[in-house]
Design a protein around this nucleic acid. Sequence first.
DNA 1: CCAAAAGTGTTAGGAGTACACCCATGG
DNA 2: CCATGGGTGTACTCCTAACACTTTTGG
Lengths: 235, 235
Amino acid sequence: MSRASRATGNPMPSSGVRVTVDLVIFTIQENRLQVLLIQRAIPPFQGRWALPGGFLRDEEGLEAAALRDLEEETGVRDVYLEQLFTFGDPGRDPRGRVVTVAYYALIAAKTATLTASTDAAAARWWAVDGHPPLAFDHERILRYAVERLRNKLEYTTVGFQLLPRKFSLTELQRVYEAILGRSLDKRNFRRKLALLGILKPLKERRSEGGRPAQLFEFSAKSFSKLRDVGIIFPF
Amino acid sequence: MSRASRATGNPMPSSGVRVTVDLVIFTIQENRLQVLLIQRAIPPFQGRWALPGGFLRDEEGLEAAALRDLEEETGVRDVYLEQLFTFGDPGRDPRGRVVTVAYYALIAAKTATLTASTDAAAARWWAVDGHPPLAFDHERILRYAVERLRNKLEYTTVGFQLLPRKFSLTELQRVYEAILGRSLDKRNFRRKLALLGILKPLKERRSEGGRPAQLFEFSAKSFSKLRDVGIIFPF
DNA sequence: CCAAAAGTGTTAGGAGTACACCCATGG
DNA sequence: CCATGGGTGTACTCCTAACACTTTTGG
């Protein structure tokens, strides 16, 4: 049947399937990984917290829909966004058959404004280890997103997406520690970064109750080189 | 709007979006990575080769749809199957808005029967480096699948899925070489495998024109240990 | 001068890589 | 006995991981 429908040109079958895009939006606050949740105002799962998301519009690409939702929720654009997984079990939404393409996004601390534009529902950041029960199968989606983020952290440079353009090495290390859930050795961490050569030292320093820290910015030029050579990034 | 539609309980919008599941089915033949393609009998892309796939049924899970298609095309069950990516750009299918959830599958050499059950269209294996032009955006899907397979090969044990239960170390090495596209050092390859302890030597040997080869089977017990410890698998 | 955070080197162990010859069988 | 593929060990390099004290600033 499947090949037949493609091969024989049967008209596209009518379908009760709806497509949504859901977002796992991460940030770092107080050295902890946080996720943006909204509180549902109506059934099903009234009062429960859920991942933000919405239906795919007819002439809209998947990533475009994710970016639109993201901007509606947080007011930010130009963030790291990556498709996570597509969830389509029958029965995962009591209102009908819904296939959800999940994305995750990384936004720099303090960038988000959490536009309270939308009606009734609350929206706030929750620590990933300490969030309330979630609606639908969103717990599963969130767990999967955290797992993906942890893996990506180890062989890419996504971690920088969670920091402002200028940052100290200690701040960067805190990001890694928050996501990986373990502490890292300061000297080994710094040596590895120096070796990778992907940080540009700035002339600025910043004080925070002790000796002022050298500030850095991420050097995009070296980023692509890193990817090409396939260097691994294991702390 | 997106949050609103979830939060306020608007009725599910009607949608022109259709969902299909497409399959990249890999096998190894003649020491080369092969992919199963079908030839389209009618427009659009009449005569072009394409990935097998079909529309998602209303009460069918995504993976179930992929397994059903797979069995229809090849007659095999119990194969490695993994969701690859979801492609949803408007305009990727001239017949209308189609969101495609792509899966890739690995089947052991000579397992597939290529059931010629379906009407008109041809179906055959093509070497991945040497396949004809593809319909729709299937070239992109195939490239992505190969990339994913290469990556997975390096830190998981998916490679074993392309071999029959009993195999020699040389056969296993050929699989790795075919997928990675480079030759590997025999001694290093064998030492690494011995170190991982995921192969069970059998009492059997097999002759193939030279000294008979020791046969092994994959030991599932050690597999889980490998994943838990997070050992990497880089040749 | 004290508290707080930044910054800095060495060593030992494990993994990766390169490399060449003998072994067992069939014809 | 020869052709064919199977099987084995060593040395070097590089990366990882463990580990403690000094420096610079603000109050």
